[in-house]
Simulated assay, not measured.
Amino acid sequence: MADQTIPDYETIRAAVAGETWAVEKVLMCYKDEIDRQATVKKRQPDGTFKLEIDEDMRQYITMKLIEALPQFPLEEMEREEKRNRDKKS
């Protein structure tokens, strides 16, 4: 997840408000992490294991992320955004 870009403030604010484009952008930012979390080992007929993405688990994680967006602590992010703007001035 270290190489993923965190969504900008405006995108997160729009996602919290339920804007479809912003929710989709947030999901795309975390797609790799969601896939990683939904990856499971499946035993093959020859006894070896294969890593696969469990689609039900991926959809469940995605749904939980979407459900959690309205509870995102925007106030903290707004304070941080204001501090960053003040530093630049």
Rank of each mutant, 00 (worst) to 15 (best):
E75H: 12
E76H: 10
I12N: 03
V26P: 04
K88F: 01
P73A: 01
V16G: 06
T5H: 13
T5V: 07
P70Y: 02
R85S: 09
C29I: 02
A17K: 15
K42Y: 06
I53L: 02
K25A: 14
A68S: 15
L27Y: 00
R79C: 00
E78S: 10
D56N: 14
E19N: 08
K50Q: 14
D46F: 08
R83A: 11
E78G: 03
L27M: 03
K42M: 10
D54K: 03
T11R: 09
G18Q: 04
W21T: 10
K42I: 13
E67D: 14
K31E: 15
T48N: 13
A14F: 04
Q71Y: 09
E33R: 12
T5Q: 13
P7T: 04
R85N: 12
E52C: 05
L51K: 15
R36A: 14
D35S: 12
D3C: 03
Q59A: 07
D56E: 13
V40D: 05
V23S: 01
K50P: 02
L69M: 06
E80Q: 12
R83D: 10
D54M: 01
T11Y: 07
E10V: 00
Q44N: 15
N84W: 09
Q59R: 14
L69Q: 07
L69E: 03
L74C: 05
R58G: 09
E24K: 13
K64P: 01
G18N: 10
E24L: 08
M28G: 08
I6R: 11
R83N: 10
Q59V: 00
E81K: 15
E75C: 02
N84G: 02
Y9I: 03
E24S: 12
K41Q: 14
T11M: 03
Y30F: 15
Q44E: 14
G18F: 02
E52P: 00
K50N: 08
K25L: 09
E81L: 07
E67Q: 15
I66R: 13
Q37R: 15
P7N: 04
D86K: 13
E76F: 07
T11C: 07
Q4P: 01
F72P: 06
I53A: 01
D8A: 05
D8S: 04
E55N: 11
R36F: 11
T39C: 05
M1Q: 09
Y60F: 11
I12Y: 01
Y60S: 12
L74S: 05
D54V: 03
T20Q: 14
G47D: 08
T39M: 07
E81Y: 14
K42C: 03
I12W: 01
K64A: 10
R13K: 15
D32L: 07
D56C: 01
Q37L: 15
C29G: 10
C29D: 03
D3G: 11
K31T: 08
E55L: 04
R13Q: 12
I66D: 02
A17M: 06
D46H: 08
D86W: 04
